[in-house]
Design a protein around this nucleic acid. Structure first.
Lengths: 151, 151
DNA sequence: TAAGGGATTACAGTTACTATAAGTCAATAC
DNA sequence: GTATTGACTTATAGTAACTGTAATCCCTTA
């Protein structure tokens, strides 16, 4: 059997450290994406082990969480970069950050609304299929129907 | 002044016809995307005017609606193509189509759940910012805070 | 000391658009 | 009747955000 030791951690540091794979599993984000974000400077302060392996702390994990959140709301990478830079500049930028988040919240609300509309469409279509499969509308050759319906 | 006549419509046809731009405005989908979908064969049966201009009917509009819906649920273009082909094959494919829609519904539910979680994160962050702006946590130089907080 | 497995980098490839340039055509303007 | 306008066409190039691959490195265990 093999014992999993994990990557090298500085001995004088008791805070937990996570590898890309750990983070990937914790946050349901692909390893590719995590490395991509880190390379783009979207996650400041990620440490490296002696063997050059990325080590995330709870702190850098929190950065990733907000990056991921902003991406989900539709903010492009460049926008996220801008937000991160605002954060690094200190408290003076808080109003601008708050404004940005408000905009993304609005965006997100709209997204959710759209998705719920799609849900209704799916439900409706599924209802139709169910009827057809249960034989309630078995007049397949009816020209009126075949003219009006697609799918 | 100029009178808008719109594109040529076959004189023997009284059903309404829409251009790409009309459809784009009706459905909030870019003209680029609509042409792209049509070129990919995702919207069967789109007519052309004598001047080669795309003419959508309510019927082809309905195709676009379902294509758009499936894309929103995360089904890739190739998957949509497959669904469209199933539709064109006739009622024998209804069970498979129903299964596909069920899968997309599940997918969509998950998406909405994820987005709502992001909403919570945004709300929380905004709450923090509000407090900071109202001066309730004005100890900016507190090392404990600057160590723990990002953004 | 050699082998193994997982992480690293650089870079190529993919998806789904998005934008541009050159050309066509119907409809007014003159 | 011809010129101009402007929306639409195609072909093709460009972009954003990953995603995948190949070569290399390095820690661990045999």
């Amino acid at each position: 059997m093999k014992k999993k030791l994990g990557p090298y951690r500085p001995s004088d540091d008791k805070t937990p450290k996570y590898t890309v794979k750990d983070v990937s599993e914790m946050m349901q984000v692909s390893s590719y994406t995590i490395r991509y974000y880190e390379n783009e400077g979207l996650i400041p302060g990620v440490e490296r082990s002696r063997g050059n392996i990325r080590l995330f702390s709870d702190h850098t994990l929190a950065w990733l969480r907000i990056v991921h959140c902003l991406r989900m709301t539709g903010l492009p990478i460049e926008g996220v970069k801008h937000y991160i830079n605002l954060c690094l500049k200190g408290d003076a930028t808080i109003p601008e950050r708050a404004e940005l988040l408000a905009k993304q919240e609005k965006n997100l609300k709209h997204q959710i609304k759209m998705l719920r509309e799609q849900m209704d469409i799916l439900k409706y279509k599924q209802g139709l299929y169910k009827k057809l499969m249960d034989g309630e509308m078995e007049d397949t050759c009816n020209p009126a129907r075949s003219k009006a319906a697609n799918g």
